[in-house]
Structure formats: structure tokens, C-alpha cells
Simulated assay, not measured.
Amino acid sequence: MQYRFGDKFKIFPALILIVLLAIPSLALAGHGDAKPVKKGILLAAFGSSMDEAQITFENIDKAVKKAFPDVPVRWAFSSAIIRNILAKNGRIVDSPVTAMSKMMDEGFTHVAVQSLHTIPGEEYSGIVETVKKFEGMPKGMTKVTVGKPLLFSDTDMRRTVKAIIANIPKDRKSKDAVVLMGHGTPHFANIFYPASQYYFAQADSKIFVGTVEGSPTLDDVKAMLAKSKSKKVYLMPYMSVAGDHARNDMAGDESDSWKSVLTKAGYKCVPVLKGSAEFPQVVDIWVDHLKVAFKHLGNN
């Protein structure tokens, strides 16, 4: 084949371009191969310092490990107060930042973080903002996803209502009322509590939702109870664990506890000290959210 001398100069720039484009790949290969995919799960709860509440976390841990038998599972508590109390008693639980840092050092490239909170409030938002910062960080993680809290969609609300009702003590009569104590928050996500009242009312007209630090209040609950004409009230925490709020604010003997206030108002109160995460049907909702988050990790 014949070609003119000038043709060399037409081909030469193209060859230079190909070589230049290949240099970064060659440099990368010279410094080692890309990290292999390593997937992990981080379970992030608010936390509790009470020994009685630890069964809640054990239940969730078992359920997650059953659903993901080959995936390493780590834990974190978002409450600094809870972590400090536990540390004084010799038990160290990582914050979300510390847990993610350790997983990054261990070479995890893909991490699904599951929020174990009830609503998408301030704690949940803080976790999302924190863990997503580890994505794309130099020598950091390739992909980080976050599973939704217990209540996030219409389906979640309906499933939660069924799960809670299924775990009301069997000796409760149809004329007896059930009062659920939620935490409450100034965050706009507090709307999930009055929304819960609506969903529960559709299923059972004698189930009432109140909160410690939000709305509906205990006064709102008392007004609804008065209309129900119930004489007996089952008090249940609308929280993942039966911790300090459930044992003191709800069922405590202090004059301002819900049990004391309602007893003084003429109701016979029966406290039920079980957090929602002790109910397998509720744990299933969190696990299903985690399955979605884990699926979204992908492989690359």
C-alpha cells in the first residue's frame, strides 16, 4: 500500500491523543487495582440506656442477620446522651460518624444504613446528612444508601397500624381504650402522629395517639377518652423501645405521668411496657425498608 509523506502527519495527532487518554489508566494500574466491592449494613437507632430495652435491639439484629446472612452488620446510636451514659457503664456504642469511619477503614465500599427511628424527623435527617458525606470521599465509599424509618408512606402507616393492633394484650375488651404514647418533635415530621391517629381511628375507634413533646398532647388524649366513655385504658409506647419515656413519663408513679394523670381522672390504667420493635410485624417493616436500600447499592 502506498501513502504520501503528508499522511503521516494526519495520523500522528490521533496516535498522540490515544496515548494521552491511556496514561491515567496506566497510572492507576501502576498504583494498584481498584478496591473490590465490599458491602455492609449499619443499623442506626436513637438508642437506650436501659437494660430492659436491649431486647429490642437484639430482635432487630437477629431479623436483619436472618435477612442478610452473608452481610456484616454494624450498629450506631444517634443520641450522644445515651452513648455517654452507656460509656460510663463500660459499654461503648459508636455514633453514626464513628461507625461509618470504622467501616471505611475496614474497606467497605457499599453501605446500606437503616434508620430505626419511628418518623423521618430531626434524628433521621441528621443521619442521612451524616452518612451521605462518606459517599465519594477520597478513599471513601462508592455508594451509601439510607433505609426509610418506620413511618414514611401510606403503606407503612397501614402496616404499622395492623402490627400494633395485633400486639395489644389479648385480654383487652372492645369497650377498653388504648392510648399510644409517641415521642413528638418540633420538627415538621411531627405530622405523622396526628396522621397516625387518623389511621388508627379507621381501624379501631378506641385507640388514641398522644405525644410527650409534640401534638397530639395528653390533654388532647383526655378529651378523646372522655368521648369514648371507656373506663379502662391500656397504655402502650408508640416508640421502638420501652425506655425512659415509657417507664417514667407513661407508666411511672410520679404525679405527672400519664398513668397517674389518667388514674386521677377516673380511668383504670394498664401499662404495657413493650416497644414497637419487640413486635415482629413492626421489625419486618424496617427490614423491608433495608432491603430496598440494600438493593439500591448496586454492584459498581
Rank of each mutant, 00 (worst) to 15 (best):
T211P: 07
A242P: 12
T211K: 03
D256H: 11
G243M: 01
R247A: 14
S255A: 15
L235D: 01
K229G: 06
K264V: 13
R247F: 15
A226S: 14
A226F: 03
S257A: 07
D219Y: 02
W258S: 01
V261E: 01
G252E: 09
S240K: 08
A246H: 03
P216N: 13
Y234N: 02
K229Y: 06
L235I: 06
L218Q: 07
G210Q: 10
T263Q: 00
G210E: 13
K229T: 10
P237L: 03
V221G: 05
S240E: 13
G243S: 01
M250P: 03
S215F: 09
E213W: 04
L235K: 01
V261F: 09
A242N: 09
S215P: 01
V212K: 02
K259N: 09
D249A: 12
F208I: 10
S215D: 05
G266N: 08
K227T: 12
W258F: 08
K227E: 09
G252S: 04
G252H: 00
A226Y: 05
V212D: 06
A223V: 13
G210P: 05
K232N: 10
V221Y: 08
L235G: 06
H245N: 08
D219E: 15
A251S: 07
D253F: 03
A223T: 13
M236V: 02
G214C: 02
S255R: 09
V209T: 10
G266S: 11
L225D: 05
K264A: 14
K268I: 13
G243C: 09
G266R: 01
K268N: 05
M250K: 00
E254K: 12
R247I: 15
D219T: 12
Y238A: 15
Y267P: 09
E213N: 15
V233Q: 05
L235Y: 00
D219C: 11
S228Q: 03
M236A: 00
G214N: 07
P237F: 01
E254V: 11
A226E: 14
L218P: 02
W258P: 02
G243L: 12
K232H: 10
H245A: 03
P216L: 03
S228D: 06
M239P: 00
G252I: 09
E254R: 15
M239T: 00
L235E: 01
K264H: 13
M224T: 10
Y234P: 07
M224V: 11
V233Y: 02
L225R: 11
G210V: 01
D219Q: 12
S260F: 04
T217F: 11
C269R: 00
E254D: 15
V209A: 00
S215M: 05
M236Y: 07
D219F: 01
V233W: 04
W258E: 02
W258K: 10
E254N: 15
A226H: 09
G243K: 11
S257Q: 06
D256K: 14
S228Y: 06
Y238D: 11
A223L: 06
M236F: 08
K268G: 10
K231L: 09
G214I: 09
Y267H: 10
L262W: 02
